[in-house]
């Protein structure tokens, strides 16, 4: 079954016809040519396909495109402003927070989404019960980023790259 949908991706509106079984990830990569979100496991376990979906981080491999008709999607490619890298993108470069780079767009989008969740006062599993202000120490960063796997195990650089931006 084909359905016409509209997606606003990295600031540009697209109207396209998709089969109902098409994931948001495949719509972005195969139909719109946006290969920034990566297909790692395709089962929601690795986080390489993470995008901001209507403002919140989500794995695009487990979202059916048809169910997100009208959605606003931001990929890692859409985080730049007037050609300027997002502070987290710059930090990943400075800290050399990757090896092969395949998980990196997902890591960076996830880190951006996580900052928004912290700003909203959202706790994590390692936040002290009842704590109102979240202190973004390494335990918090690791817990909040646990949905993004890196098979090169560049975590030792990813954590400080994120910590640097968390501190402003």
């Amino acid at each position: 079954m084909d359905v016409e949908i509209t997606l606003r991706v990295d600031g540009t509106e697209h109207t396209l016809v998709v089969d109902t079984r098409t994931t948001l990830l495949d719509a972005l990569r195969e139909r719109l040519g946006n290969t920034s979100p990566k297909k790692g496991c395709d089962h929601g376990q690795c986080g390489a396909c993470t995008v901001l979906l209507d403002g919140w981080r989500a794995v695009s491999c487990l979202a059916l495109a048809v169910a997100h008709d009208g959605a606003t999607v931001i990929t890692a490619a859409g985080l730049t402003t007037n050609g300027e890298l997002h502070p987290l993108q710059r930090s990943f470069v400075i800290f050399d927070a990757f090896q092969c780079g395949y998980c990196t767009p997902g890591q960076i989008v996830s880190a951006v989404g996580r900052l928004d969740e912290v700003s909203a006062g959202w706790p994590s599993a390692v936040t002290a019960p009842g704590a109102v202000d979240v202190v973004l120490d390494d335990d918090e960063i690791r817990e909040r980023m646990s949905g993004n796997l890196c098979r090169c195990a560049a975590y030792a650089k990813i954590v400080p790259a994120i910590r640097e931006v968390a501190r402003g």
Partner: peptide, 29 residues
């Protein structure tokens, strides 16, 4: 659900259980 102030204050077990599951990306959806 996990972040809601009323849940955190009156039913902390519920907030903690949700935060112990899945990842930030999955919990948002």
């Amino acid at each position: 659900l996990a972040a809601h102030p009323v849940i955190r204050q009156r039913y902390p077990v519920l907030s903690e259980a949700v935060l112990a599951g899945a990842s930030g990306q999955l919990r948002n959806v």
